[in-house]
Amino acid sequence: MGSINTRINMSVIVFADTRGEKVAKSTLETLTYGRKIAAKEGGTVTLVTFGDAPQDRLGALDANKVVVARNIGDADSQQLTRLVADLAGKENAKWIIFTHDDTGKAVAPRVAAKLQAGEVAGAITLPNEQGHIKRNVFSGKAQAWVELKTPLKVVSVLPNSIPVEAASPGASVEEYSGDLGVAKVTVKETRKAGEGIPLPEAEVVVSAGRGMKGPENWGMVEELAKELHAATACSRPVADMDWRPHHEHVGQTGVAIRPNLYIAIGISGAIQHLAGVNGSKVIAVINSDPEAPFFKSADYGIVGDAFEVLPKLIEAAKKLNAER
């Protein structure tokens, strides 16, 4: 059937964070996801955002329309839920797409529950021919295809899963003027953690484990990361011993990441560690023990002492940077 009317009226809502120095890559990925669904189903894309991003930046996004709620932050997920739910109704949305980041993880399930819509949390593919969407389960040790059974569908897209595709930018920008209620959750203080690339978004990650012997030896790890424009990460015992901050802990009980390149130095490759990193496209392992289990999951390996190998890698990375 698919009457012409429903095709024309349908819309895809993309909720994304547009704050910061520039639009995050994950936002562009989520927008690409929404655009592809809209193109397939014959609808328009409305990007819903919040905060203080400059008007020209919003107008340059690849959406039909941008709606921005200027006076709210992301601390109160109830306000953001009201915003998205209100616009989903007004725009006759059939899909609502989020980024599976800190904000999306809090707001997408709320919106799904409020609107009684099925949700895929952490999608790694677009819908296939049957409309099923793939996501990681068992901490990345397996994947599941999920079917959403409701007419309205909510998806949060895992960063680094969908390649960004450029379209023809140019959106009309509207400021949201509805009533979002009072924020119950308020931010009292923000402590800047310093420079560095946020781990979940990094394309290259240099990670180190107990094989580094102590926090005083992390200078080399950081230097290699800097040369490769990489984020730094660590294994759980390293964070537990306070050698490194907790937010660097990757694995089953830490952050799950899927960068293009994961370099693991002095990490044994325990199953709980692998669970958080085995979605990486390429894995390189440096370990002094040829029997270290991590080599079984690696694409490239060096059996050697980190303290001898790291300086060679830093030197080679510097050389590569000088050449390009």
């Binding site: 040790k141 079917e147 059974k149 409701t150």
Partner: peptide, 10 residues
């Protein structure tokens, strides 16, 4: 509201 239709191993 949703169902898992199939699992797969990498």
């Amino acid at each position: 509201l949703s169902t898992t239709v199939k699992f797969e191993l990498p």
